[in-house]
Design a protein around this nucleic acid. Structure first.
Ligand code: MN
Ligand code: MN
Ligand code: ZN
Ligand code: ZN
Lengths: 132, 132
DNA sequence: AAAGTACTTTATAATGATTCTAAACAAGTG
DNA sequence: CACTTGTTTAGAATCATTATAAAGTACTTT
């Protein structure tokens, strides 16, 4: 299976549950922006079985740590993750509570002129909030 | 008192508790980036009394709704607020979990080229994560 | 393939931030 | 001062997330 390596790289044994999570996360071409609840719902629908929330949380966090997923900073009570781990920016549609990818060419290069001693830049992310 | 108007504008009667919250929030020149817990701690220290958390939450949310405070999107289990309500960007120091204001001249103008039908841009915020 | 070890899943409990509730209390009004 | 309305508060409720520990599975070693 094509996800076994991804799981092993993340320090996880390939189990039925984890492979199902992978299929939902990585089997599609388009970016998937999701909360844990979204993901659990999608697994249930696609595979017609329920995976314990603890397993979903653990797997998602292992992937995030390894860089196969990333978290998107948003003002929400739930944490949002993204299958697009490249450096990119977002629209956030406030009324639908949905994230939309922006291409870097939609935003242009961002040059941060200020420096803080002893710290280096890890990421630069733009969040564009949209209203109706 | 100088905060009575701010409170009335926010639809709140000026009470002892709310005026104390105002003093901590608006009596200083520098921007204050805070969580509800930070704010409650600071009130306790400055005024030597404790205000119920419900009151702190209610007051902060009323100010936010009126535009006297704003929320900063961050990956954290706690919500961060900002007394600087102008359009501006942030460094987020990951190891100290602290926000630092960036001047707009530190980032330069950001021109969002993509448009979404029926939606308009409400805000454009840059978050620069810093590591050691 | 059986046995042994280490890791995994799961239901359930614990935690922690935030919101709700309703009773005691304070502010505004005339 | 009486009256109404808004406020404070402790404590309960809610909800996302994390921890626990018992039963199950994957991998390794014979
Ligand atoms: Mn937040
Ligand atoms: Mn978040
Ligand atoms: Zn994205
Ligand atoms: Zn700020």
């Amino acid at each position: 299976m094509k996800y076994i390596e991804k799981l092993r790289n993340s320090g996880l044994r390939p189990t039925k549950q984890r492979l199902q999570i992978c299929e939902v996360l990585f089997d599609v071409d388009e970016t998937f922006h999701f909360t844990i609840y979204d993901l659990a719902k999608k697994i249930k629908k696609k595979h017609n079985n329920k995976i314990s929330l603890a397993t979903v949380y653990n797997t998602v966090h292992a992937f995030e740590k390894k860089g196969y997923l990333k978290q998107i900073p948003i003002n929400s009570n739930q944490t949002y993750f993204d299958t697009n781990v490249s450096d990119h920016h977002h629209f956030y549609d406030l009324s639908e509570e949905k994230l939309i990818d922006l291409k870097n060419s939609d935003v242009g290069p961002i040059n941060i002129k200020k420096k803080i001693d002893g710290k280096k830049i890890k990421s630069v992310e733009v969040l564009v909030k949209l209203e109706d």
